[in-house]
Design a protein around this nucleic acid. Structure first.
Lengths: 162, 162
DNA sequence: GGCAGATACTTTAGGCTTCATCTATTCAGG
DNA sequence: CCTGAATAGATGAAGCCTAAAGTATCTGCC
């Protein structure tokens, strides 16, 4: 999560000055995202002793009480399969998640929250949402809607051009 | 860089439905940021064989031709000092950066781009900016200005409330 | 001068992440 | 059935990142 600074103005970079706009926009986006993410990580760690990736994985499972296969988790979390293996291993060790055999495919697992995991997640999710509401306080509904729309367009532009 | 999904609607989370807005906003922000970052990392790796943190560190140095101390790099990059130690070590090994003695303080280093580092960075920065311009294509000046302003407010709100 | 606390940096342990590679299983055509 | 390709997941190496602890140096105060 770096904070790129590429705006030294006295250097010719080969694109028009007007286009520095795109670079500035991306850097500011990154900064905002990092500020919130950093704070959330810190609070998850301090209050619940959990990491953001583990919380994220549990949140996926909470939305799918029937369980998810490893590759489904990988897709939903947008990380590689090997990464999911490690995070699930940790959560299993902590008793928050369980690996069940998938009868229809002996290569696969069905990963589910345990009862303890479900209970723990409910509490963490409540706190997490409170934190985010708090961090974004002072953002009016109008502003927040405008930002949502612009970000939707940004997402589309990025997907189309990558 | 996870992709949190916390919006299962049929679960009581303890905050009003209206406030899910904040959560959705943060998740979308995270997604956008990840999409761009992922693409930039991939291209830096594929075309220049460099990582984003190393590129970031070099970009800080490029803006400060007189060199930076380790703790200044740490502050600018928003990462811990130990992290900077590792990244500088790598870049020194690659000959892109050099550690000079700081005469006024024997505890400190002055880190600078080498001539080779400066040359390499110029080329990478040019490509990097082109990529970002490309990814954000189709964003009008008006939209981009509006987004910049909203993100500035978001940054301020986050800083004030964390 | 000398000492206590602060500062600059490094080191270590633990965790996340990717890519490349590996094993086991499934699937599709013959 | 059998075999080759695809798929599910695990593993290992390398890199980024943090927090905590350690070393060396500096600074301010007596």
């Amino acid at each position: 999560m770096p904070a790129l600074r590429l705006l030294r103005p006295d250097r010719e970079t080969g694109v028009r000055a007007d286009e520095h706009r795109a670079l500035r926009l991306w850097l500011r986006l990154l900064t905002c995202s990092q500020l919130i993410e950093r704070e959330v990580r810190k609070r998850l760690r301090g209050r619940f002793g959990i990491t953001l990736p583990r919380f994220d994985l549990m949140s996926q499972l909470e939305r799918h009480p029937e369980g998810l296969k490893m590759n489904e988790l990988s897709r939903l979390m947008m990380v590689t399969g090997g990464n999911v293996t490690g995070i699930v291993d940790q959560l299993v060790k902590e008793g928050l998640v369980e690996r069940l055999d998938e009868p229809s495919d002996r290569r696969a697992w069905r990963v589910r929250l345990t009862r303890a995991g479900d209970k723990a997640f409910a509490e963490m999710a409540r706190a997490h949402e409170e934190w985010v509401v708090e961090l974004l306080a002072g953002f009016s509904r109008r502003e927040s809607d405008a930002l949502m729309q612009l970000l939707a367009r940004l997402k589309r532009s990025t997907l189309e051009n990558s």
